[in-house]
Each structure stands twice: as structure tokens, then as C-alpha cells.
Amino acid sequence: MKVSYLDDAFFSRLETLALNLRSNLAGYFGGKHFVKTYGQTVEFSDYREYQLGDDIRRIDWNLFSRFEKYFLKLFTDERQMQVQIFLDCSASMGRFEPKKKAYSMATAAAIGFLAVHNMDKLTLNFMRGTRSENPFGTIVGKTSFFRAIGELENLPLVDDVDINECVASCPDTGQNNGVTVIISDFMTDSNWKKAVDYLNYKHRQVLLIQILSPEEIDPSYDGRVHLVDSEAPDLMDERNMKIKITKAALAAYQEAFGDFLKDISDFCRKRDVGFISVNCDTRIERVLFSEMLKEGIMS
């Protein structure tokens, strides 16, 4: 069953929103993001005394007449940011659950749209195995964006993903120049936390979005079952497991699942990393207009 959220109505609802990035980023010239550095915009920021070498055209003569000292008028600078999206393309993201795949695609597209809508650079990295692929290059402008989005729905989801390797192997992770969004279910044995640390080292603002299916949050099956992992190549793979699901087993699952989320959440909080965990049964508008606003990544 093919599920898709990407239509005109979806994107038109996003036009009123913008990404809210940290102001200590450097970015590139141009763009719409206010930063702490002073620039040539019309947005007043501060005064400082004239120093030798300053452009005398920027002296505020009104203040000179009042204090008989030379002060320069400073203005806020606006920069262009780089928005990098790392999308988990492993089988667990929707091989057996098309809705989860469509939900993750829609989330990536929404963030990408906000980026290009605010004249930022957008990079879509698809994580496969230990590598990340960037088939569309740097996307600037909506035309390029929509062309890239058109290909998203045909994106194959296979194998497993090592997020750390994928992020580390990315040739252009940028440095202090934007936000990196990792969209995954984070149900992997790979050490994705190293990837987050790496991005922090690169002074990138990081946002983790966890997409989960209802079955993962609250399994509805019981009895003696042979659980086959979607990333397992065959039935004999060690990732598969035979288990008798009883009430006690379900309770243990809920406890493990809660601790799993808490671990991610605690990790992100310590590193000032944004983290959103969403159920793909939740309406996507609620994620965009509620959860992301609450997290402060959107405004």
C-alpha cells in the first residue's frame, strides 16, 4: 500500500513557518537568519565608539551632538544556513510498514521545504549501510527542491544502517553553518551517539527525529511467535528471535522501550540536541505545528 503525504496542500501549510536556528552559527552570506555578528542590514543592533579605521560614514552624528564623542551604529547580520538531512534508509524504516516510510519522507520534505523557503542550502543525505548518499547535491530554491522530492517516494529501503559511519563519511558535514537533522527510528546496534558528538564538534545544530510505528510502541501480538527483523537477510539471521509473548513479556518490552526513549532523550538533553519521537499514527501536522514548535526548531 502506497502512502504519501507530499502534495500541494501539505507544502502550502508549511509556508507560514520557518526554521528557528541558533544565532551563534556563522553561515554564509545572504540568507534570512539573524546572527550575532554585525552586518549591513537595516536591523539596529548596538553602538560602539569609533575606532581608527572605521568608516566615518557609519558615525552617528546625533549622538556626537549630544555627547561630543564619535559612536558607530551597528546593525544585525543575516546569514544563509546549510540544512543537512540524514534520512535512515534501512529496511526498518518501512519495509513492512509503508506508513512509517511515508511519514519519515514527509518529515524530511517538510524540513527541507522550510530550508529552501528561507533561502537556506539543503542537503539530503540518504544513509545506506555505512555510507550516505547525496544524489541531489546542494539544493537551493524550490524548483530544485521539488525535483528532488519527486524522487523521494521511490526511495528503496534495504539493509541496515550504521548512522555513525554514514555521518562521519559524509564529505560535507559543514562547520558552524547550519542544522543537521537525523531522521531514523534509532533502533540499531550502531553507535549513532558518536555521530551526534561529531556533529556537535563541528558546531552544527543537531535535531534527532525518531519515527516509530504503533506496533513498535505497543505490540498487539501475543503467543508463541517467531519475530522476523525486517533488516534480517533470512529467517536464520540472529536478529530474528523466537519468543513466547505473555503479559510479562509485554511488560518487559514496555519497560525496555521506555528506557530506550529515555536514554535517547537524556543523551540529547545533555548535548543540547533537539529530539522528537513521533508515532506515525499521529497526524503529521501535529508533529510539524506542535512538536517542532515545542522543541523550538520552528517558529
Partner: peptide, 14 residues
């Protein structure tokens, strides 16, 4: 009974 799920990650944790 065979049950295909996204990931057995949490089940193994459990």
C-alpha cells in the same frame, strides 16, 4: 507463528 516486524531491537533489549 512468524511475525514480520520493523526491528527486534527493543525485544532483544526487553
Amino acid at each position: 507463528q512468524t511475525k514480520y516486524i520493523s526491528s527486534t531491537f527493543v525485544w532483544k533489549l526487553s
